[in-house]
C-alpha cells in the first residue's frame, strides 16, 4: 500500500493502516514525509497527556486505568508507551502492555509500544509523528508514557499538553523533591502506591516543594492514587481536566501548541543536519592522526556540510 493510501485510510479511522503508518514513520521508510504532510491538518486534534516518572512508580498501570475511564466515557484513546532500546544490540523489551490489561482488548483504545532507538530525553524520535498519526486516526485523547525517568529527561513537556508526574513513596527524601529537572515540569502530580508506607510523607514533601513558589498561574495538585485498585484515578483525571480547562482559557493551549510546533521543526532540522554530520564522520573514519587538533578538523568538516545534501 502506498504511503498516501495509508494516510487516507488512517484519516478514515482504519486501525491497520494507522498501525502501518506508524511503522513506516518510525522506520523513516520511503514516502513517510508525504504521508505525514497529508494527515497534518488533523495532527493536532487529540489532547495529549504525558505520563512520566521513575521506573516502577506505576506509570503503565495508571495509564491503563486513565485510558479505561476515558474509553468508558465514549472517547477514543491512544496510548504510546516508550521503553528503552539497547545501545549495544538495538533490541528492546517493550513491556508496558503487561500492565494494560484493562484496555488491551478495548476497540476504542489503540496502544503502541516504541523503543527509544537512541533518543535520550525519555521519548523516541518518532513520538511526535506517532501522536500526529494517532490524532489523525481519530483519537480524542492520547496518553504518552515515557521511559522510566531519572532526573533530567524532560522531552515530554515539549510533547504533551498536560504532563503528569507519577511518584511513589520511598524513592528519596525531601531534597530529591527540590532538585531541578523533572520535578519542575509537572502540571499534575500523582503519588501512586498510596497504600504503601510513606505515601502521605511523599505527598507532603512534594506539596512543600510546590509551596515554595508563590506566583503560580496553575498550581499542580498532588493526588494520592492506588493504580492497581483504581483508587484516586477519577480524582486524578479530574486534576488533568482542570489543567486542560486552565489551558483552554485565554489562548494558552494555542500558545503551547505553537511552541510544540516550533520544537518539532527544530527537531526535524537538527535530525537532518545530524545525519549529514554522521556521513561526514564516516568519511573521516579512523582519525588516528593525533597531531591535528579537533578544532581545525571540525572547521574543515563544517565547510564540507553542503546544505543541498541535507
Amino acid at each position: 500500500m502506498s504511503p498516501l493510501e495509508l494516510a487516507r485510510l488512517t484519516l478514515a479511522g482504519d486501525k491497520r493502516a494507522c498501525s502501518r503508518l506508524i511503522s513506516l514513520t518510525e522506520n523513516e521508510g520511503t514516502g513517510y514525509l508525504d504521508a505525514l504532510k497529508a494527515i497534518y491538518p488533523c495532527a493536532d486534534k487529540a489532547y495529549v497527556i504525558g505520563v512520566t516518572g521513575p521506573p516502577g512508580s506505576g506509570k503503565s498501570t495508571l495509564t491503563d486505568k486513565l485510558a479505561k475511564t476515558l474509553a468508558d466515557g465514549g472517547k477514543r484513546v491512544g496510548i504510546v508507551a516508550i521503553d528503552p532500546t539497547s545501545p549495544f544490540t538495538k533490541g528492546s523489551i517493550l513491556g508496558d502492555r503487561i500492565r494494560m490489561g484493562a484496555v488491551s482488548a478495548d476497540k476504542n483504545v489503540f496502544i503502541r509500544s516504541m523503543g527509544t532507538r537512541g533518543s535520550l530525553g525519555g521519548l523516541s524520535k518518532a513520538t511526535a509523528n506517532t501522536l500526529a498519526i494517532l490524532s489523525a486516526y481519530g483519537c480524542d485523547y492520547i496518553l504518552v508514557e515515557t521511559v522510566g525517568v531519572g532526573q533530567s529527561e524532560i522531552d515530554i513537556v515539549r510533547t504533551a499538553d498536560t504532563t503528569l508526574m507519577v511518584m511513589a513513596p520511598g524513592l528519596g527524601d525531601d531534597i530529591q523533591a527540590i532538585k531541578a529537572g523533572v520535578m519542575e515540569i509537572a502540571d499534575v502530580f500523582a503519588v501512586n502506591k498510596a497504600d504503601k508506607d510513606g505515601a502521605k510523607k511523599t505527598q507532603l514533601e512534594i506539596s512543600a516543594m510546590l509551596d515554595f513558589r508563590m506566583d503560580w498561574d496553575f498550581k499542580p495538585t498532588v493526588r494520592l492514587t492506588v493504580a492497581e485498585t483504581g483508587d484516586g484515578v477519577d480524582g486524578l483525571l479530574g486534576d488533568i481536566m482542570a489543567h486542560r480547562d486552565y489551558l483552554s482559557n485565554g489562548g494558552k493551549l494555542e500558545k503551547k501548541r505553537a511552541y510544540k510546533r516550533m520544537s518539532h521543526i527544530r527537531d526535524i532540522i537538527r535530525d537532518r543536519l545530524d545525519r549529514r554530520v554522521e556521513e561526514l564522520m564516516a568519511d573521516l573514519a579512523a582519525c588516528t592522526d593525533a597531531g591535528r587538533d579537533p578544532y581545525s578538523m571540525s572547521e574543515e568538516l563544517i565547510r564540507k556540510i553542503d546544505l543541498t545534501r541535507i
Binding site: 544490540t89 533490541g91 517493550l94 503487561i98 488491551s104
Partner: peptide, 19 residues
C-alpha cells in the same frame, strides 16, 4: 530476541486470543 536485536512486545500472562 532482544539480544538478537529485535523489538519484543511482551504482553505478560493470561492473554485472551482477542488481546
Amino acid at each position: 530476541f532482544r539480544d538478537a536485536g529485535m523489538e519484543v512486545i511482551y504482553t505478560g500472562l493470561r492473554q485472551t486470543p482477542e488481546q
